[in-house]
Design a protein around this nucleic acid. Structure first.
Length: 496
RNA sequence: GCGGUUGUGGUCUAGACUGGUCAGGACCCAAGCUUCCCAAGCUUGUGGCCCGGGUUCGAAUCCCGGCAACCGCACCA
């Protein structure tokens, strides 16, 4: 059981992450990544790109601005859909969503109503506060998007993007041509998104500025699904935990019959990324199907991937897999008056989209939590070597008799190939402890034998076991270990 | 946003009811000594009362406002 205070304290003390602007008292919903956190974040992004862009030669990375013009988000539906009419009780100060109050009291569907209509309806039906019976003030619009004025007069405006996806849709047409009309075509992007959350909470779980890594795959149903069906073998025997309605089951992906194979294939790849690349304990991840009420209307199929957080009170969404149909391109085709259909043997069609959406900060927190361990002796972070901010640390056993200088030489050699750290302060045990805490995967120690025969010890963070190798072969062995080509235990000359 | 609780070096905390002789401890960190493998020891050192206002001769302590965190409610296309 990982304790949230302990993990947060470690993250602050050692340089992973903490609340932004903390010397000014902070601002809810914003976090900074320190030197280790930033490295971890970059490593995560690199491995994400490697894995998902590696799924097909027709998948590529693009970057788009953080600010979108007003019209883009008007067409996408965010200007309307992303905002709610809030009503506030004059007496007790509680706020409610206007449409919810109307629906609850009158049974009428009120989601379509604007501010004035909701105001009228409340007057007409003489609705009062569900908490205290007080009367309501004038309704007000609350939009989750941050609107920004553009240019000196501010006549034009835009929004900080509430998701990275829209920028990708806007580039469908150009990339489809630039990539010479290959389909399925994948466009990935990693970047920040912004939502004016009413109450950002729980560390990096709900932020006002957060990072997303998304892969949008464009395809024509009935024509390109075959591509994914052909790869179905790769995932069909993958055992996953899946929650649908009230029931949670462990099943093989291939045994799920009422979800199309092209969708299951992507569930499988998402799962594989978490278990194989991020090293998650499979017991801590599951898919959950969203109910009709929870799902956005345009999502035809929607499962979230959830991680079981000790620190955040249980199962929480970290990614989503959304089959969005042709909704997005259709909306932008209409809004921009630009043809976004492609020609097929059956005439022009608007491509459909399946979106793999990752909450990067949530992934990072899950990674830290999954890797964080404590026992009576020590705290240590067990995260995959490719992701670890420090892969190797080098120390002299003691500072005298030339060991210090020799350790520095070894450090210089290893630092060319790995993310390497060197330190000399304190006792050897203390240095191991410091490095265990931040997940330095391997500690290389220069001792008196090194001075005789040029051998060093390599210690593994997880087992605390050591092997002795020559300096010449150290790089090669570390590389095999870090690339996961060989396991630490496979080296036979294990010392205590 | 509402209600409750809380805010003291980098981290964790003592002190607050009963205002002054109160800013103390532990760990961490840095420098040095020491040290032949898992947070040993010794010496020295850096660093703090969330922010603003008020009451008072005097505020970490009392009062007001703000900010932040935690819990609950609401919210989370």
């Amino acid at each position: 059981m990982t304790n949230r205070d302990e993990l947060e304290s470690m993250c602050k003390r050692r340089g992973f992450l903490w609340q932004s602007a903390e010397i000014y008292g902070g601002e809810a919903g914003f976090y900074d990544y320190g030197h280790l956190g930033a490295e971890l974040l970059d490593n995560w992004k690199r491995e994400w790109k490697k894995f998902f862009l590696g799924l097909s030669e027709d998948y590529h990375l693009i970057y788009t601005p953080n600010i979108h013009p007003y019209r883009v988000l008007e067409s996408s539906g965010h200007v309307d859909q992303f905002s709610d009419v809030m009503i506030r009780c004059d007496r007790c100060g509680s706020s409610f969503r206007g449409d919810h109050v109307i629906e609850a009291e009158t049974g009428e569907d009120a989601e379509w109503m604007d501010k004035d209509e909701i105001g009228d309806k409340i007057q007409e039906s003489a609705l009062s506060c569900p908490d205290c019976g007080g009367s309501f003030a004038q309704p007000e619009d609350f939009n989750m998007m941050f609107e920004v004025a553009l240019g000196p007069t501010g006549e034009r405006s835009g929004f900080l993007r509430p998701e990275t996806a829209q920028g990708v849709y806007l580039n469908f047409r150009r990339e489809f041509r630039a990539l010479r009309k290959k389909m399925p075509m994948g466009l990935a992007t990693i970047g920040s998104a912004f939502r004016n959350e009413i109450s950002p909470r729980q560390g990096v779980y709900r932020l006002r500025e957060f990072r997303q890594a998304e892969l949008q795959i464009f395809f024509i149903p009935g024509i390109h699904e075959e591509v994914f069906e052909n790869r179905f073998e790769e995932i069909k025997n993958m055992p996953v935990r899946i929650k649908r309605g009230d029931k949670t089951k462990e099943v093989l992906l291939g045994d799920i019959e009422d979800v199309p194979p092209f969708y299951l294939y992507h569930l499988g790849k998402m799962y594989e990324y978490h278990t194989d690349v991020m090293g998650f304990d499979p017991q801590r991840i599951r898919f959950r199907e969203l109910s009709e009420e929870e799902k956005a209307f345009y999502n035809k199929i929607h499962f979230d991937l959830e991680f079981k957080f000790d620190t955040l009170g249980g199962w929480k969404e970290i990614n989503g897999l959304h089959y969005r149909g042709d909704h997005d391109l259709k909306q932008h085709q209409k809004g921009s008056n630009t043809k976004l259909s492609v020609s097929t043997e059956e005439g022009r069609k608007i491509p459909h989209v399946i979106e793999l959406s990752f909450g990067v900060d949530r992934n990072i927190w899950a990674l830290l939590e999954d890797g964080y361990n404590s026992d009576d002796d020590r705290d240590w972070l067990d995260i995959p070597p490719k992701l670890a901010p420090r892969q190797v640390a080098v120390f002299p056993l003691v500072k005298k008799d030339g060991l210090l200088e020799r350790s520095r030489e070894v450090y210089e050699i290893l630092d060319d190939e790995f993310r390497t750290h060197w330190e000399k302060t304190g006792s050897i045990g203390k240095r191991y402890a410091r490095n265990d805490e931040v997940g330095t995967r391997y500690c290389v120690t220069i001792d008196y034998d090194t001075m005789d025969d040029d051998s060093v010890t390599i210690r593994d963070v997880e087992s605390k076991k050591q092997i002795r190798v020559s300096i010449d072969e150290a790089s090669g062995i570390l590389k095999e270990l870090i690339e996961c080509e060989k396991r630490f235990d496979d080296h036979s000359n294990t010392e205590g």
